[in-house]
Simulated assay, not measured.
Amino acid sequence: MALSNAEIASRYGQALFDVAESKEITSQTTAELAELQAVIKEQPDLLVFFASPQITNEAKNEMLHGLQTNASQLVNDFLQMLFDYGRIQNVSEIIDEFNRLNDEKNGTVRVKVTTAIELDDDQKAKLSAKFAQVVGANKVILEPVVDGSIIGGVILRSKDNIYDGSVKSKIDKIKRLLLN
Rank of each mutant, 00 (worst) to 15 (best):
G107E: 00
S10I: 01
E97H: 04
A38N: 14
S22R: 10
G148I: 11
N76K: 13
P44C: 10
Q43C: 15
G165M: 06
N180D: 12
I8L: 05
K105I: 00
N106W: 01
E21L: 07
A59Y: 10
S52P: 01
K168S: 09
L177F: 11
L74R: 06
G148R: 09
F49I: 12
M63F: 00
F78K: 00
S149L: 13
L64H: 11
N102T: 11
S128C: 01
A116M: 13
K173D: 09
S158Y: 00
L119N: 02
V111S: 03
D18A: 00
K126C: 12
S52D: 10
I155N: 01
R157H: 00
M63I: 12
L127I: 06
T30F: 15
Y12V: 00
Q37V: 02
E93S: 11
S10P: 03
V39I: 15
Q89E: 02
D45L: 15
N99P: 08
Q123I: 01
L16V: 06
I171M: 01
V145I: 05
L142N: 05
I141T: 08
D122F: 14
D164H: 09
F17I: 01
V19P: 03
Q37I: 03
A51K: 15
L33S: 10
G13T: 08
V145G: 04
E62A: 13
